[in-house]
Design a protein around this nucleic acid. Structure first.
Lengths: 151, 151
DNA sequence: TCAAGCTTGATGCAATTGCATCTATCCGCT
DNA sequence: AGCGGATAGATGCAATTGCATCAAGCTTGA
């Protein structure tokens, strides 16, 4: 069983992807810290819960959406709850489960994070690539996703 | 002072970039773990040191190359040294510093990691995009880098 | 019905990361 | 020479993450 070797083009693209994504995240996290706001992971969850509306979400539904391990979700939700940003409700038809819902304070926090996060995205992506290039980039990345997105 | 808002195209591209990069890393880390190999970060350092040759590198030179904080480099090098993959040499003209050099065992480990890492890159990038698309992707990502790379 | 196995979510413990600070050395200046 | 500040690297402590496992509730099939 012989191992595959990547093409030089694949290696270059990979290296850039790794470096760029880490740089973008780091700058954004720095901006959040500088504003006294919580890390990006909090935003992801608050965003999903805000989109989900009053019905909320089950923790296991968050696992794939925010790409965290089960214990990661469990602990992140505990932190959010401790900060009053989400609330956990028992769910009637499954005694094991719970439904997690964003609170008004959580919505507010989401907005405040977005003010910084959105600006960071604009700075780091919007200002550097044209709308057309951004679409091309998104499309190429979509084909790397699992499952791939063709647009 | 009004905060900038990102364009929808920028947000989509950002979201894809975040998700894809995390997915790719996670799959690769899983593959390494499955082979009983150390994490990606070890490869990065071993790779830089291998490229640097016999002269080795100073720890502070690794900071920018592998995008780790100073204490991150310090501790990662300690782990690598504890595993006999690198060696630290005092440097003559600066009593504070040290030179870090990869050992034969380190080179070997690098090769073994690459067997898995390279296959993962081939699987996840090479097999999904054409050489032309990979070049386009690398070029677009290069413009997001700091400092940007125009090719 | 009820045991075996699966799913949901939490948690003890170890490893890693982040932050702040420390030590040691070096450099520039007076 | 010697003081003040900068630089190289390490480290104590707290927070986070990863791994393994647990408890509780559900579901299936004999």
């Amino acid at each position: 069983m012989t191992k595959k070797s990547p093409s030089p083009e694949a290696v270059t693209a990979w290296a850039r992807l790794m470096r760029v994504s880490r740089q973008l995240v780091e700058k954004t996290e720095d901006a959040l810290k500088a504003s006294g706001l919580p890390p990006l992971g909090w935003y992801d969850v608050l965003h999903e819960l805000a989109e989900a509306g009053e019905g909320g979400l089950r923790p296991f539904e968050l696992i794939d959406r925010v790409l965290l391990a089960q214990y990661g979700v469990s602990r992140l939700l505990a932190r959010l709850e401790a900060n009053g940003l989400v609330e956990k409700l028992p769910v009637s038809d499954d005694g094991r489960g719970q439904t997690v819902r964003i609170t008004p304070s959580g919505r507010d926090m989401r907005r405040r994070i977005w003010a910084v996060y959105g600006a960071s995205i604009a700075d780091q992506m919007g200002d550097r690539l044209s709308a057309q290039d951004l679409k091309t980039l998104a499309s190429l990345l979509g084909r790397l996703r699992d499952p791939p997105i063709s647009d």
